[in-house]
């Protein structure tokens, strides 16, 4: 069990960087620094984090950082991790990408690194659309959400990237949320101990793109978990285990009504009752699949 007071006080994310108010990526990056401290090396493809760093020759991120072309972060991280290992450096190389750099344009590279079991940690900072270019839909945008390229609300489902990565048979998969930093840092610390490919999918509500008050990022993130929309789990060597934070919401009765989550966000302003019904069904399906998989994989 990790206690906040035991973690470093060193600032790995410097004040005055270029993130928007209430940015979930700022939170996530800070937690990565708190977990890995001076061992951290970041590889960052195109996305909001390209901007958050601020303007060179300065940087707002107090960790070594290699920017890389959009599609290439897991591959570049694999090369970098290999070189640092050859040079005897005690490094934790983190490929820090968004939903585009992971699920869409970066997917081939991500899948390749996972299949090769490259010794990196890939973190998807999932703000559920292409926020850096101005809120366009991605394959991780949820059903019903408004974006500038889904003005009537997205008609398709969110791609289940964590389970796709689980199917790659890698040593470690986890989902996390910026609303639950201790859970996230614990998962980072666990990933650090494991050799090979580690995947952590960090749910990251974006005030600008989701149209909510920048003071509400943590609350929205928590509601995603409490409504059962976002399920925190881990898979070590394929064995799926629902995380304690999400466990209560396996039972429908414990879930906060989805409307509580939706009403805070402008992107869901125009969803119809039929669409909400479909969302509820999808939540139930996701839980059913995951609980079944937990049961099945407990026997392997």
């Amino acid at each position: 069990m990790i206690r906040l007071q035991d973690l470093t006080k060193k600032k790995y994310l410097l004040p005055g960087n270029a993130a928007c108010p209430g940015c979930p990526l700022n939170m996530g990056l800070r937690y990565v620094g708190m977990a890995f401290e001076d061992k951290t090396v970041l590889v960052v493809p195109a996305g909001c984090t390209s901007v958050i760093q601020g303007l060179m020759p300065k940087t707002g991120i107090n960790m070594p950082l290699l920017n890389i072309a959009f599609a290439a972060s897991p591959a570049a991280a694999a090369g970098l991790a290999t070189a640092l290992a050859l040079r005897g450096k005690d490094a934790i190389v983190v490929s820090w990408a968004g939903d585009g750099g992971s699920a869409d344009i970066g997917f081939a590279s991500l899948s390749g690194a996972a299949e090769r079991n490259d010794n990196i940690i890939h973190i998807v900072a999932d703000n559920e659309a292409y926020m850096n270019t101005g809120i366009q839909r991605s394959s991780l945008t949820p059903f019903g959400a408004w974006t500038t390229t889904t003005v009537k609300g997205k008609q398709e489902q969110k791609k289940d990237l964590p389970l796709i990565m689980w199917a790659h048979k890698v040593p470690y998969i986890a989902t996390a949320s910026v609303g639950y930093p201790i859970d996230f840092i614990e998962k980072l610390k666990k990933a650090q101990q494991i050799k090979g490919f580690k995947y952590i999918h960090l749910h990251a509500p974006c005030p600008v793109g989701w149209r909510f008050d920048p003071g509400m990022t943590v609350e929205v993130a928590k509601l995603a978990v409490q409504t059962g929309m976002w399920i925190l789990f881990e898979a070590e060597n394929g064995k799926i285990r629902i995380s304690p934070t999400s466990r209560p919401y396996a039972n429908k009765k414990n879930r906060t009504p989805l409307e509580e989550y939706l009403k805070l966000q402008g992107r869901f302003e125009k969803v119809t009752p039929e669409m909400i019904k479909k969302m509820y069904e999808e939540i139930d399906n996701n839980w059913r699949i995951l609980l079944e998989l937990e049961e099945i994989t407990s026997k392997i």
């Binding site: 590889v43 290699l66 890389i68 072309a69 599609a71 290439a72 972060s73 897991p74 591959a75 570049a76 991280a77 694999a78 090369g79 970098l80 991790a81 290999t82 070189a83 640092l84 050859l86 040079r87 081939a108 590279s109 899948s111 390749g112 299949e115 090769r116 490259d118």
Partner: peptide, 26 residues
């Protein structure tokens, strides 16, 4: 040496670049 058997040429140069940025001949 280490061979990284990548899934595409884009990744081939990205991985070689990552290694070179990390201080070795790639």
């Amino acid at each position: 040496a280490v061979m990284i058997r990548v899934e595409s040429e884009h990744s081939a140069l990205a991985a070689a670049y990552g290694a070179a940025a990390g201080g070795v001949r790639a």
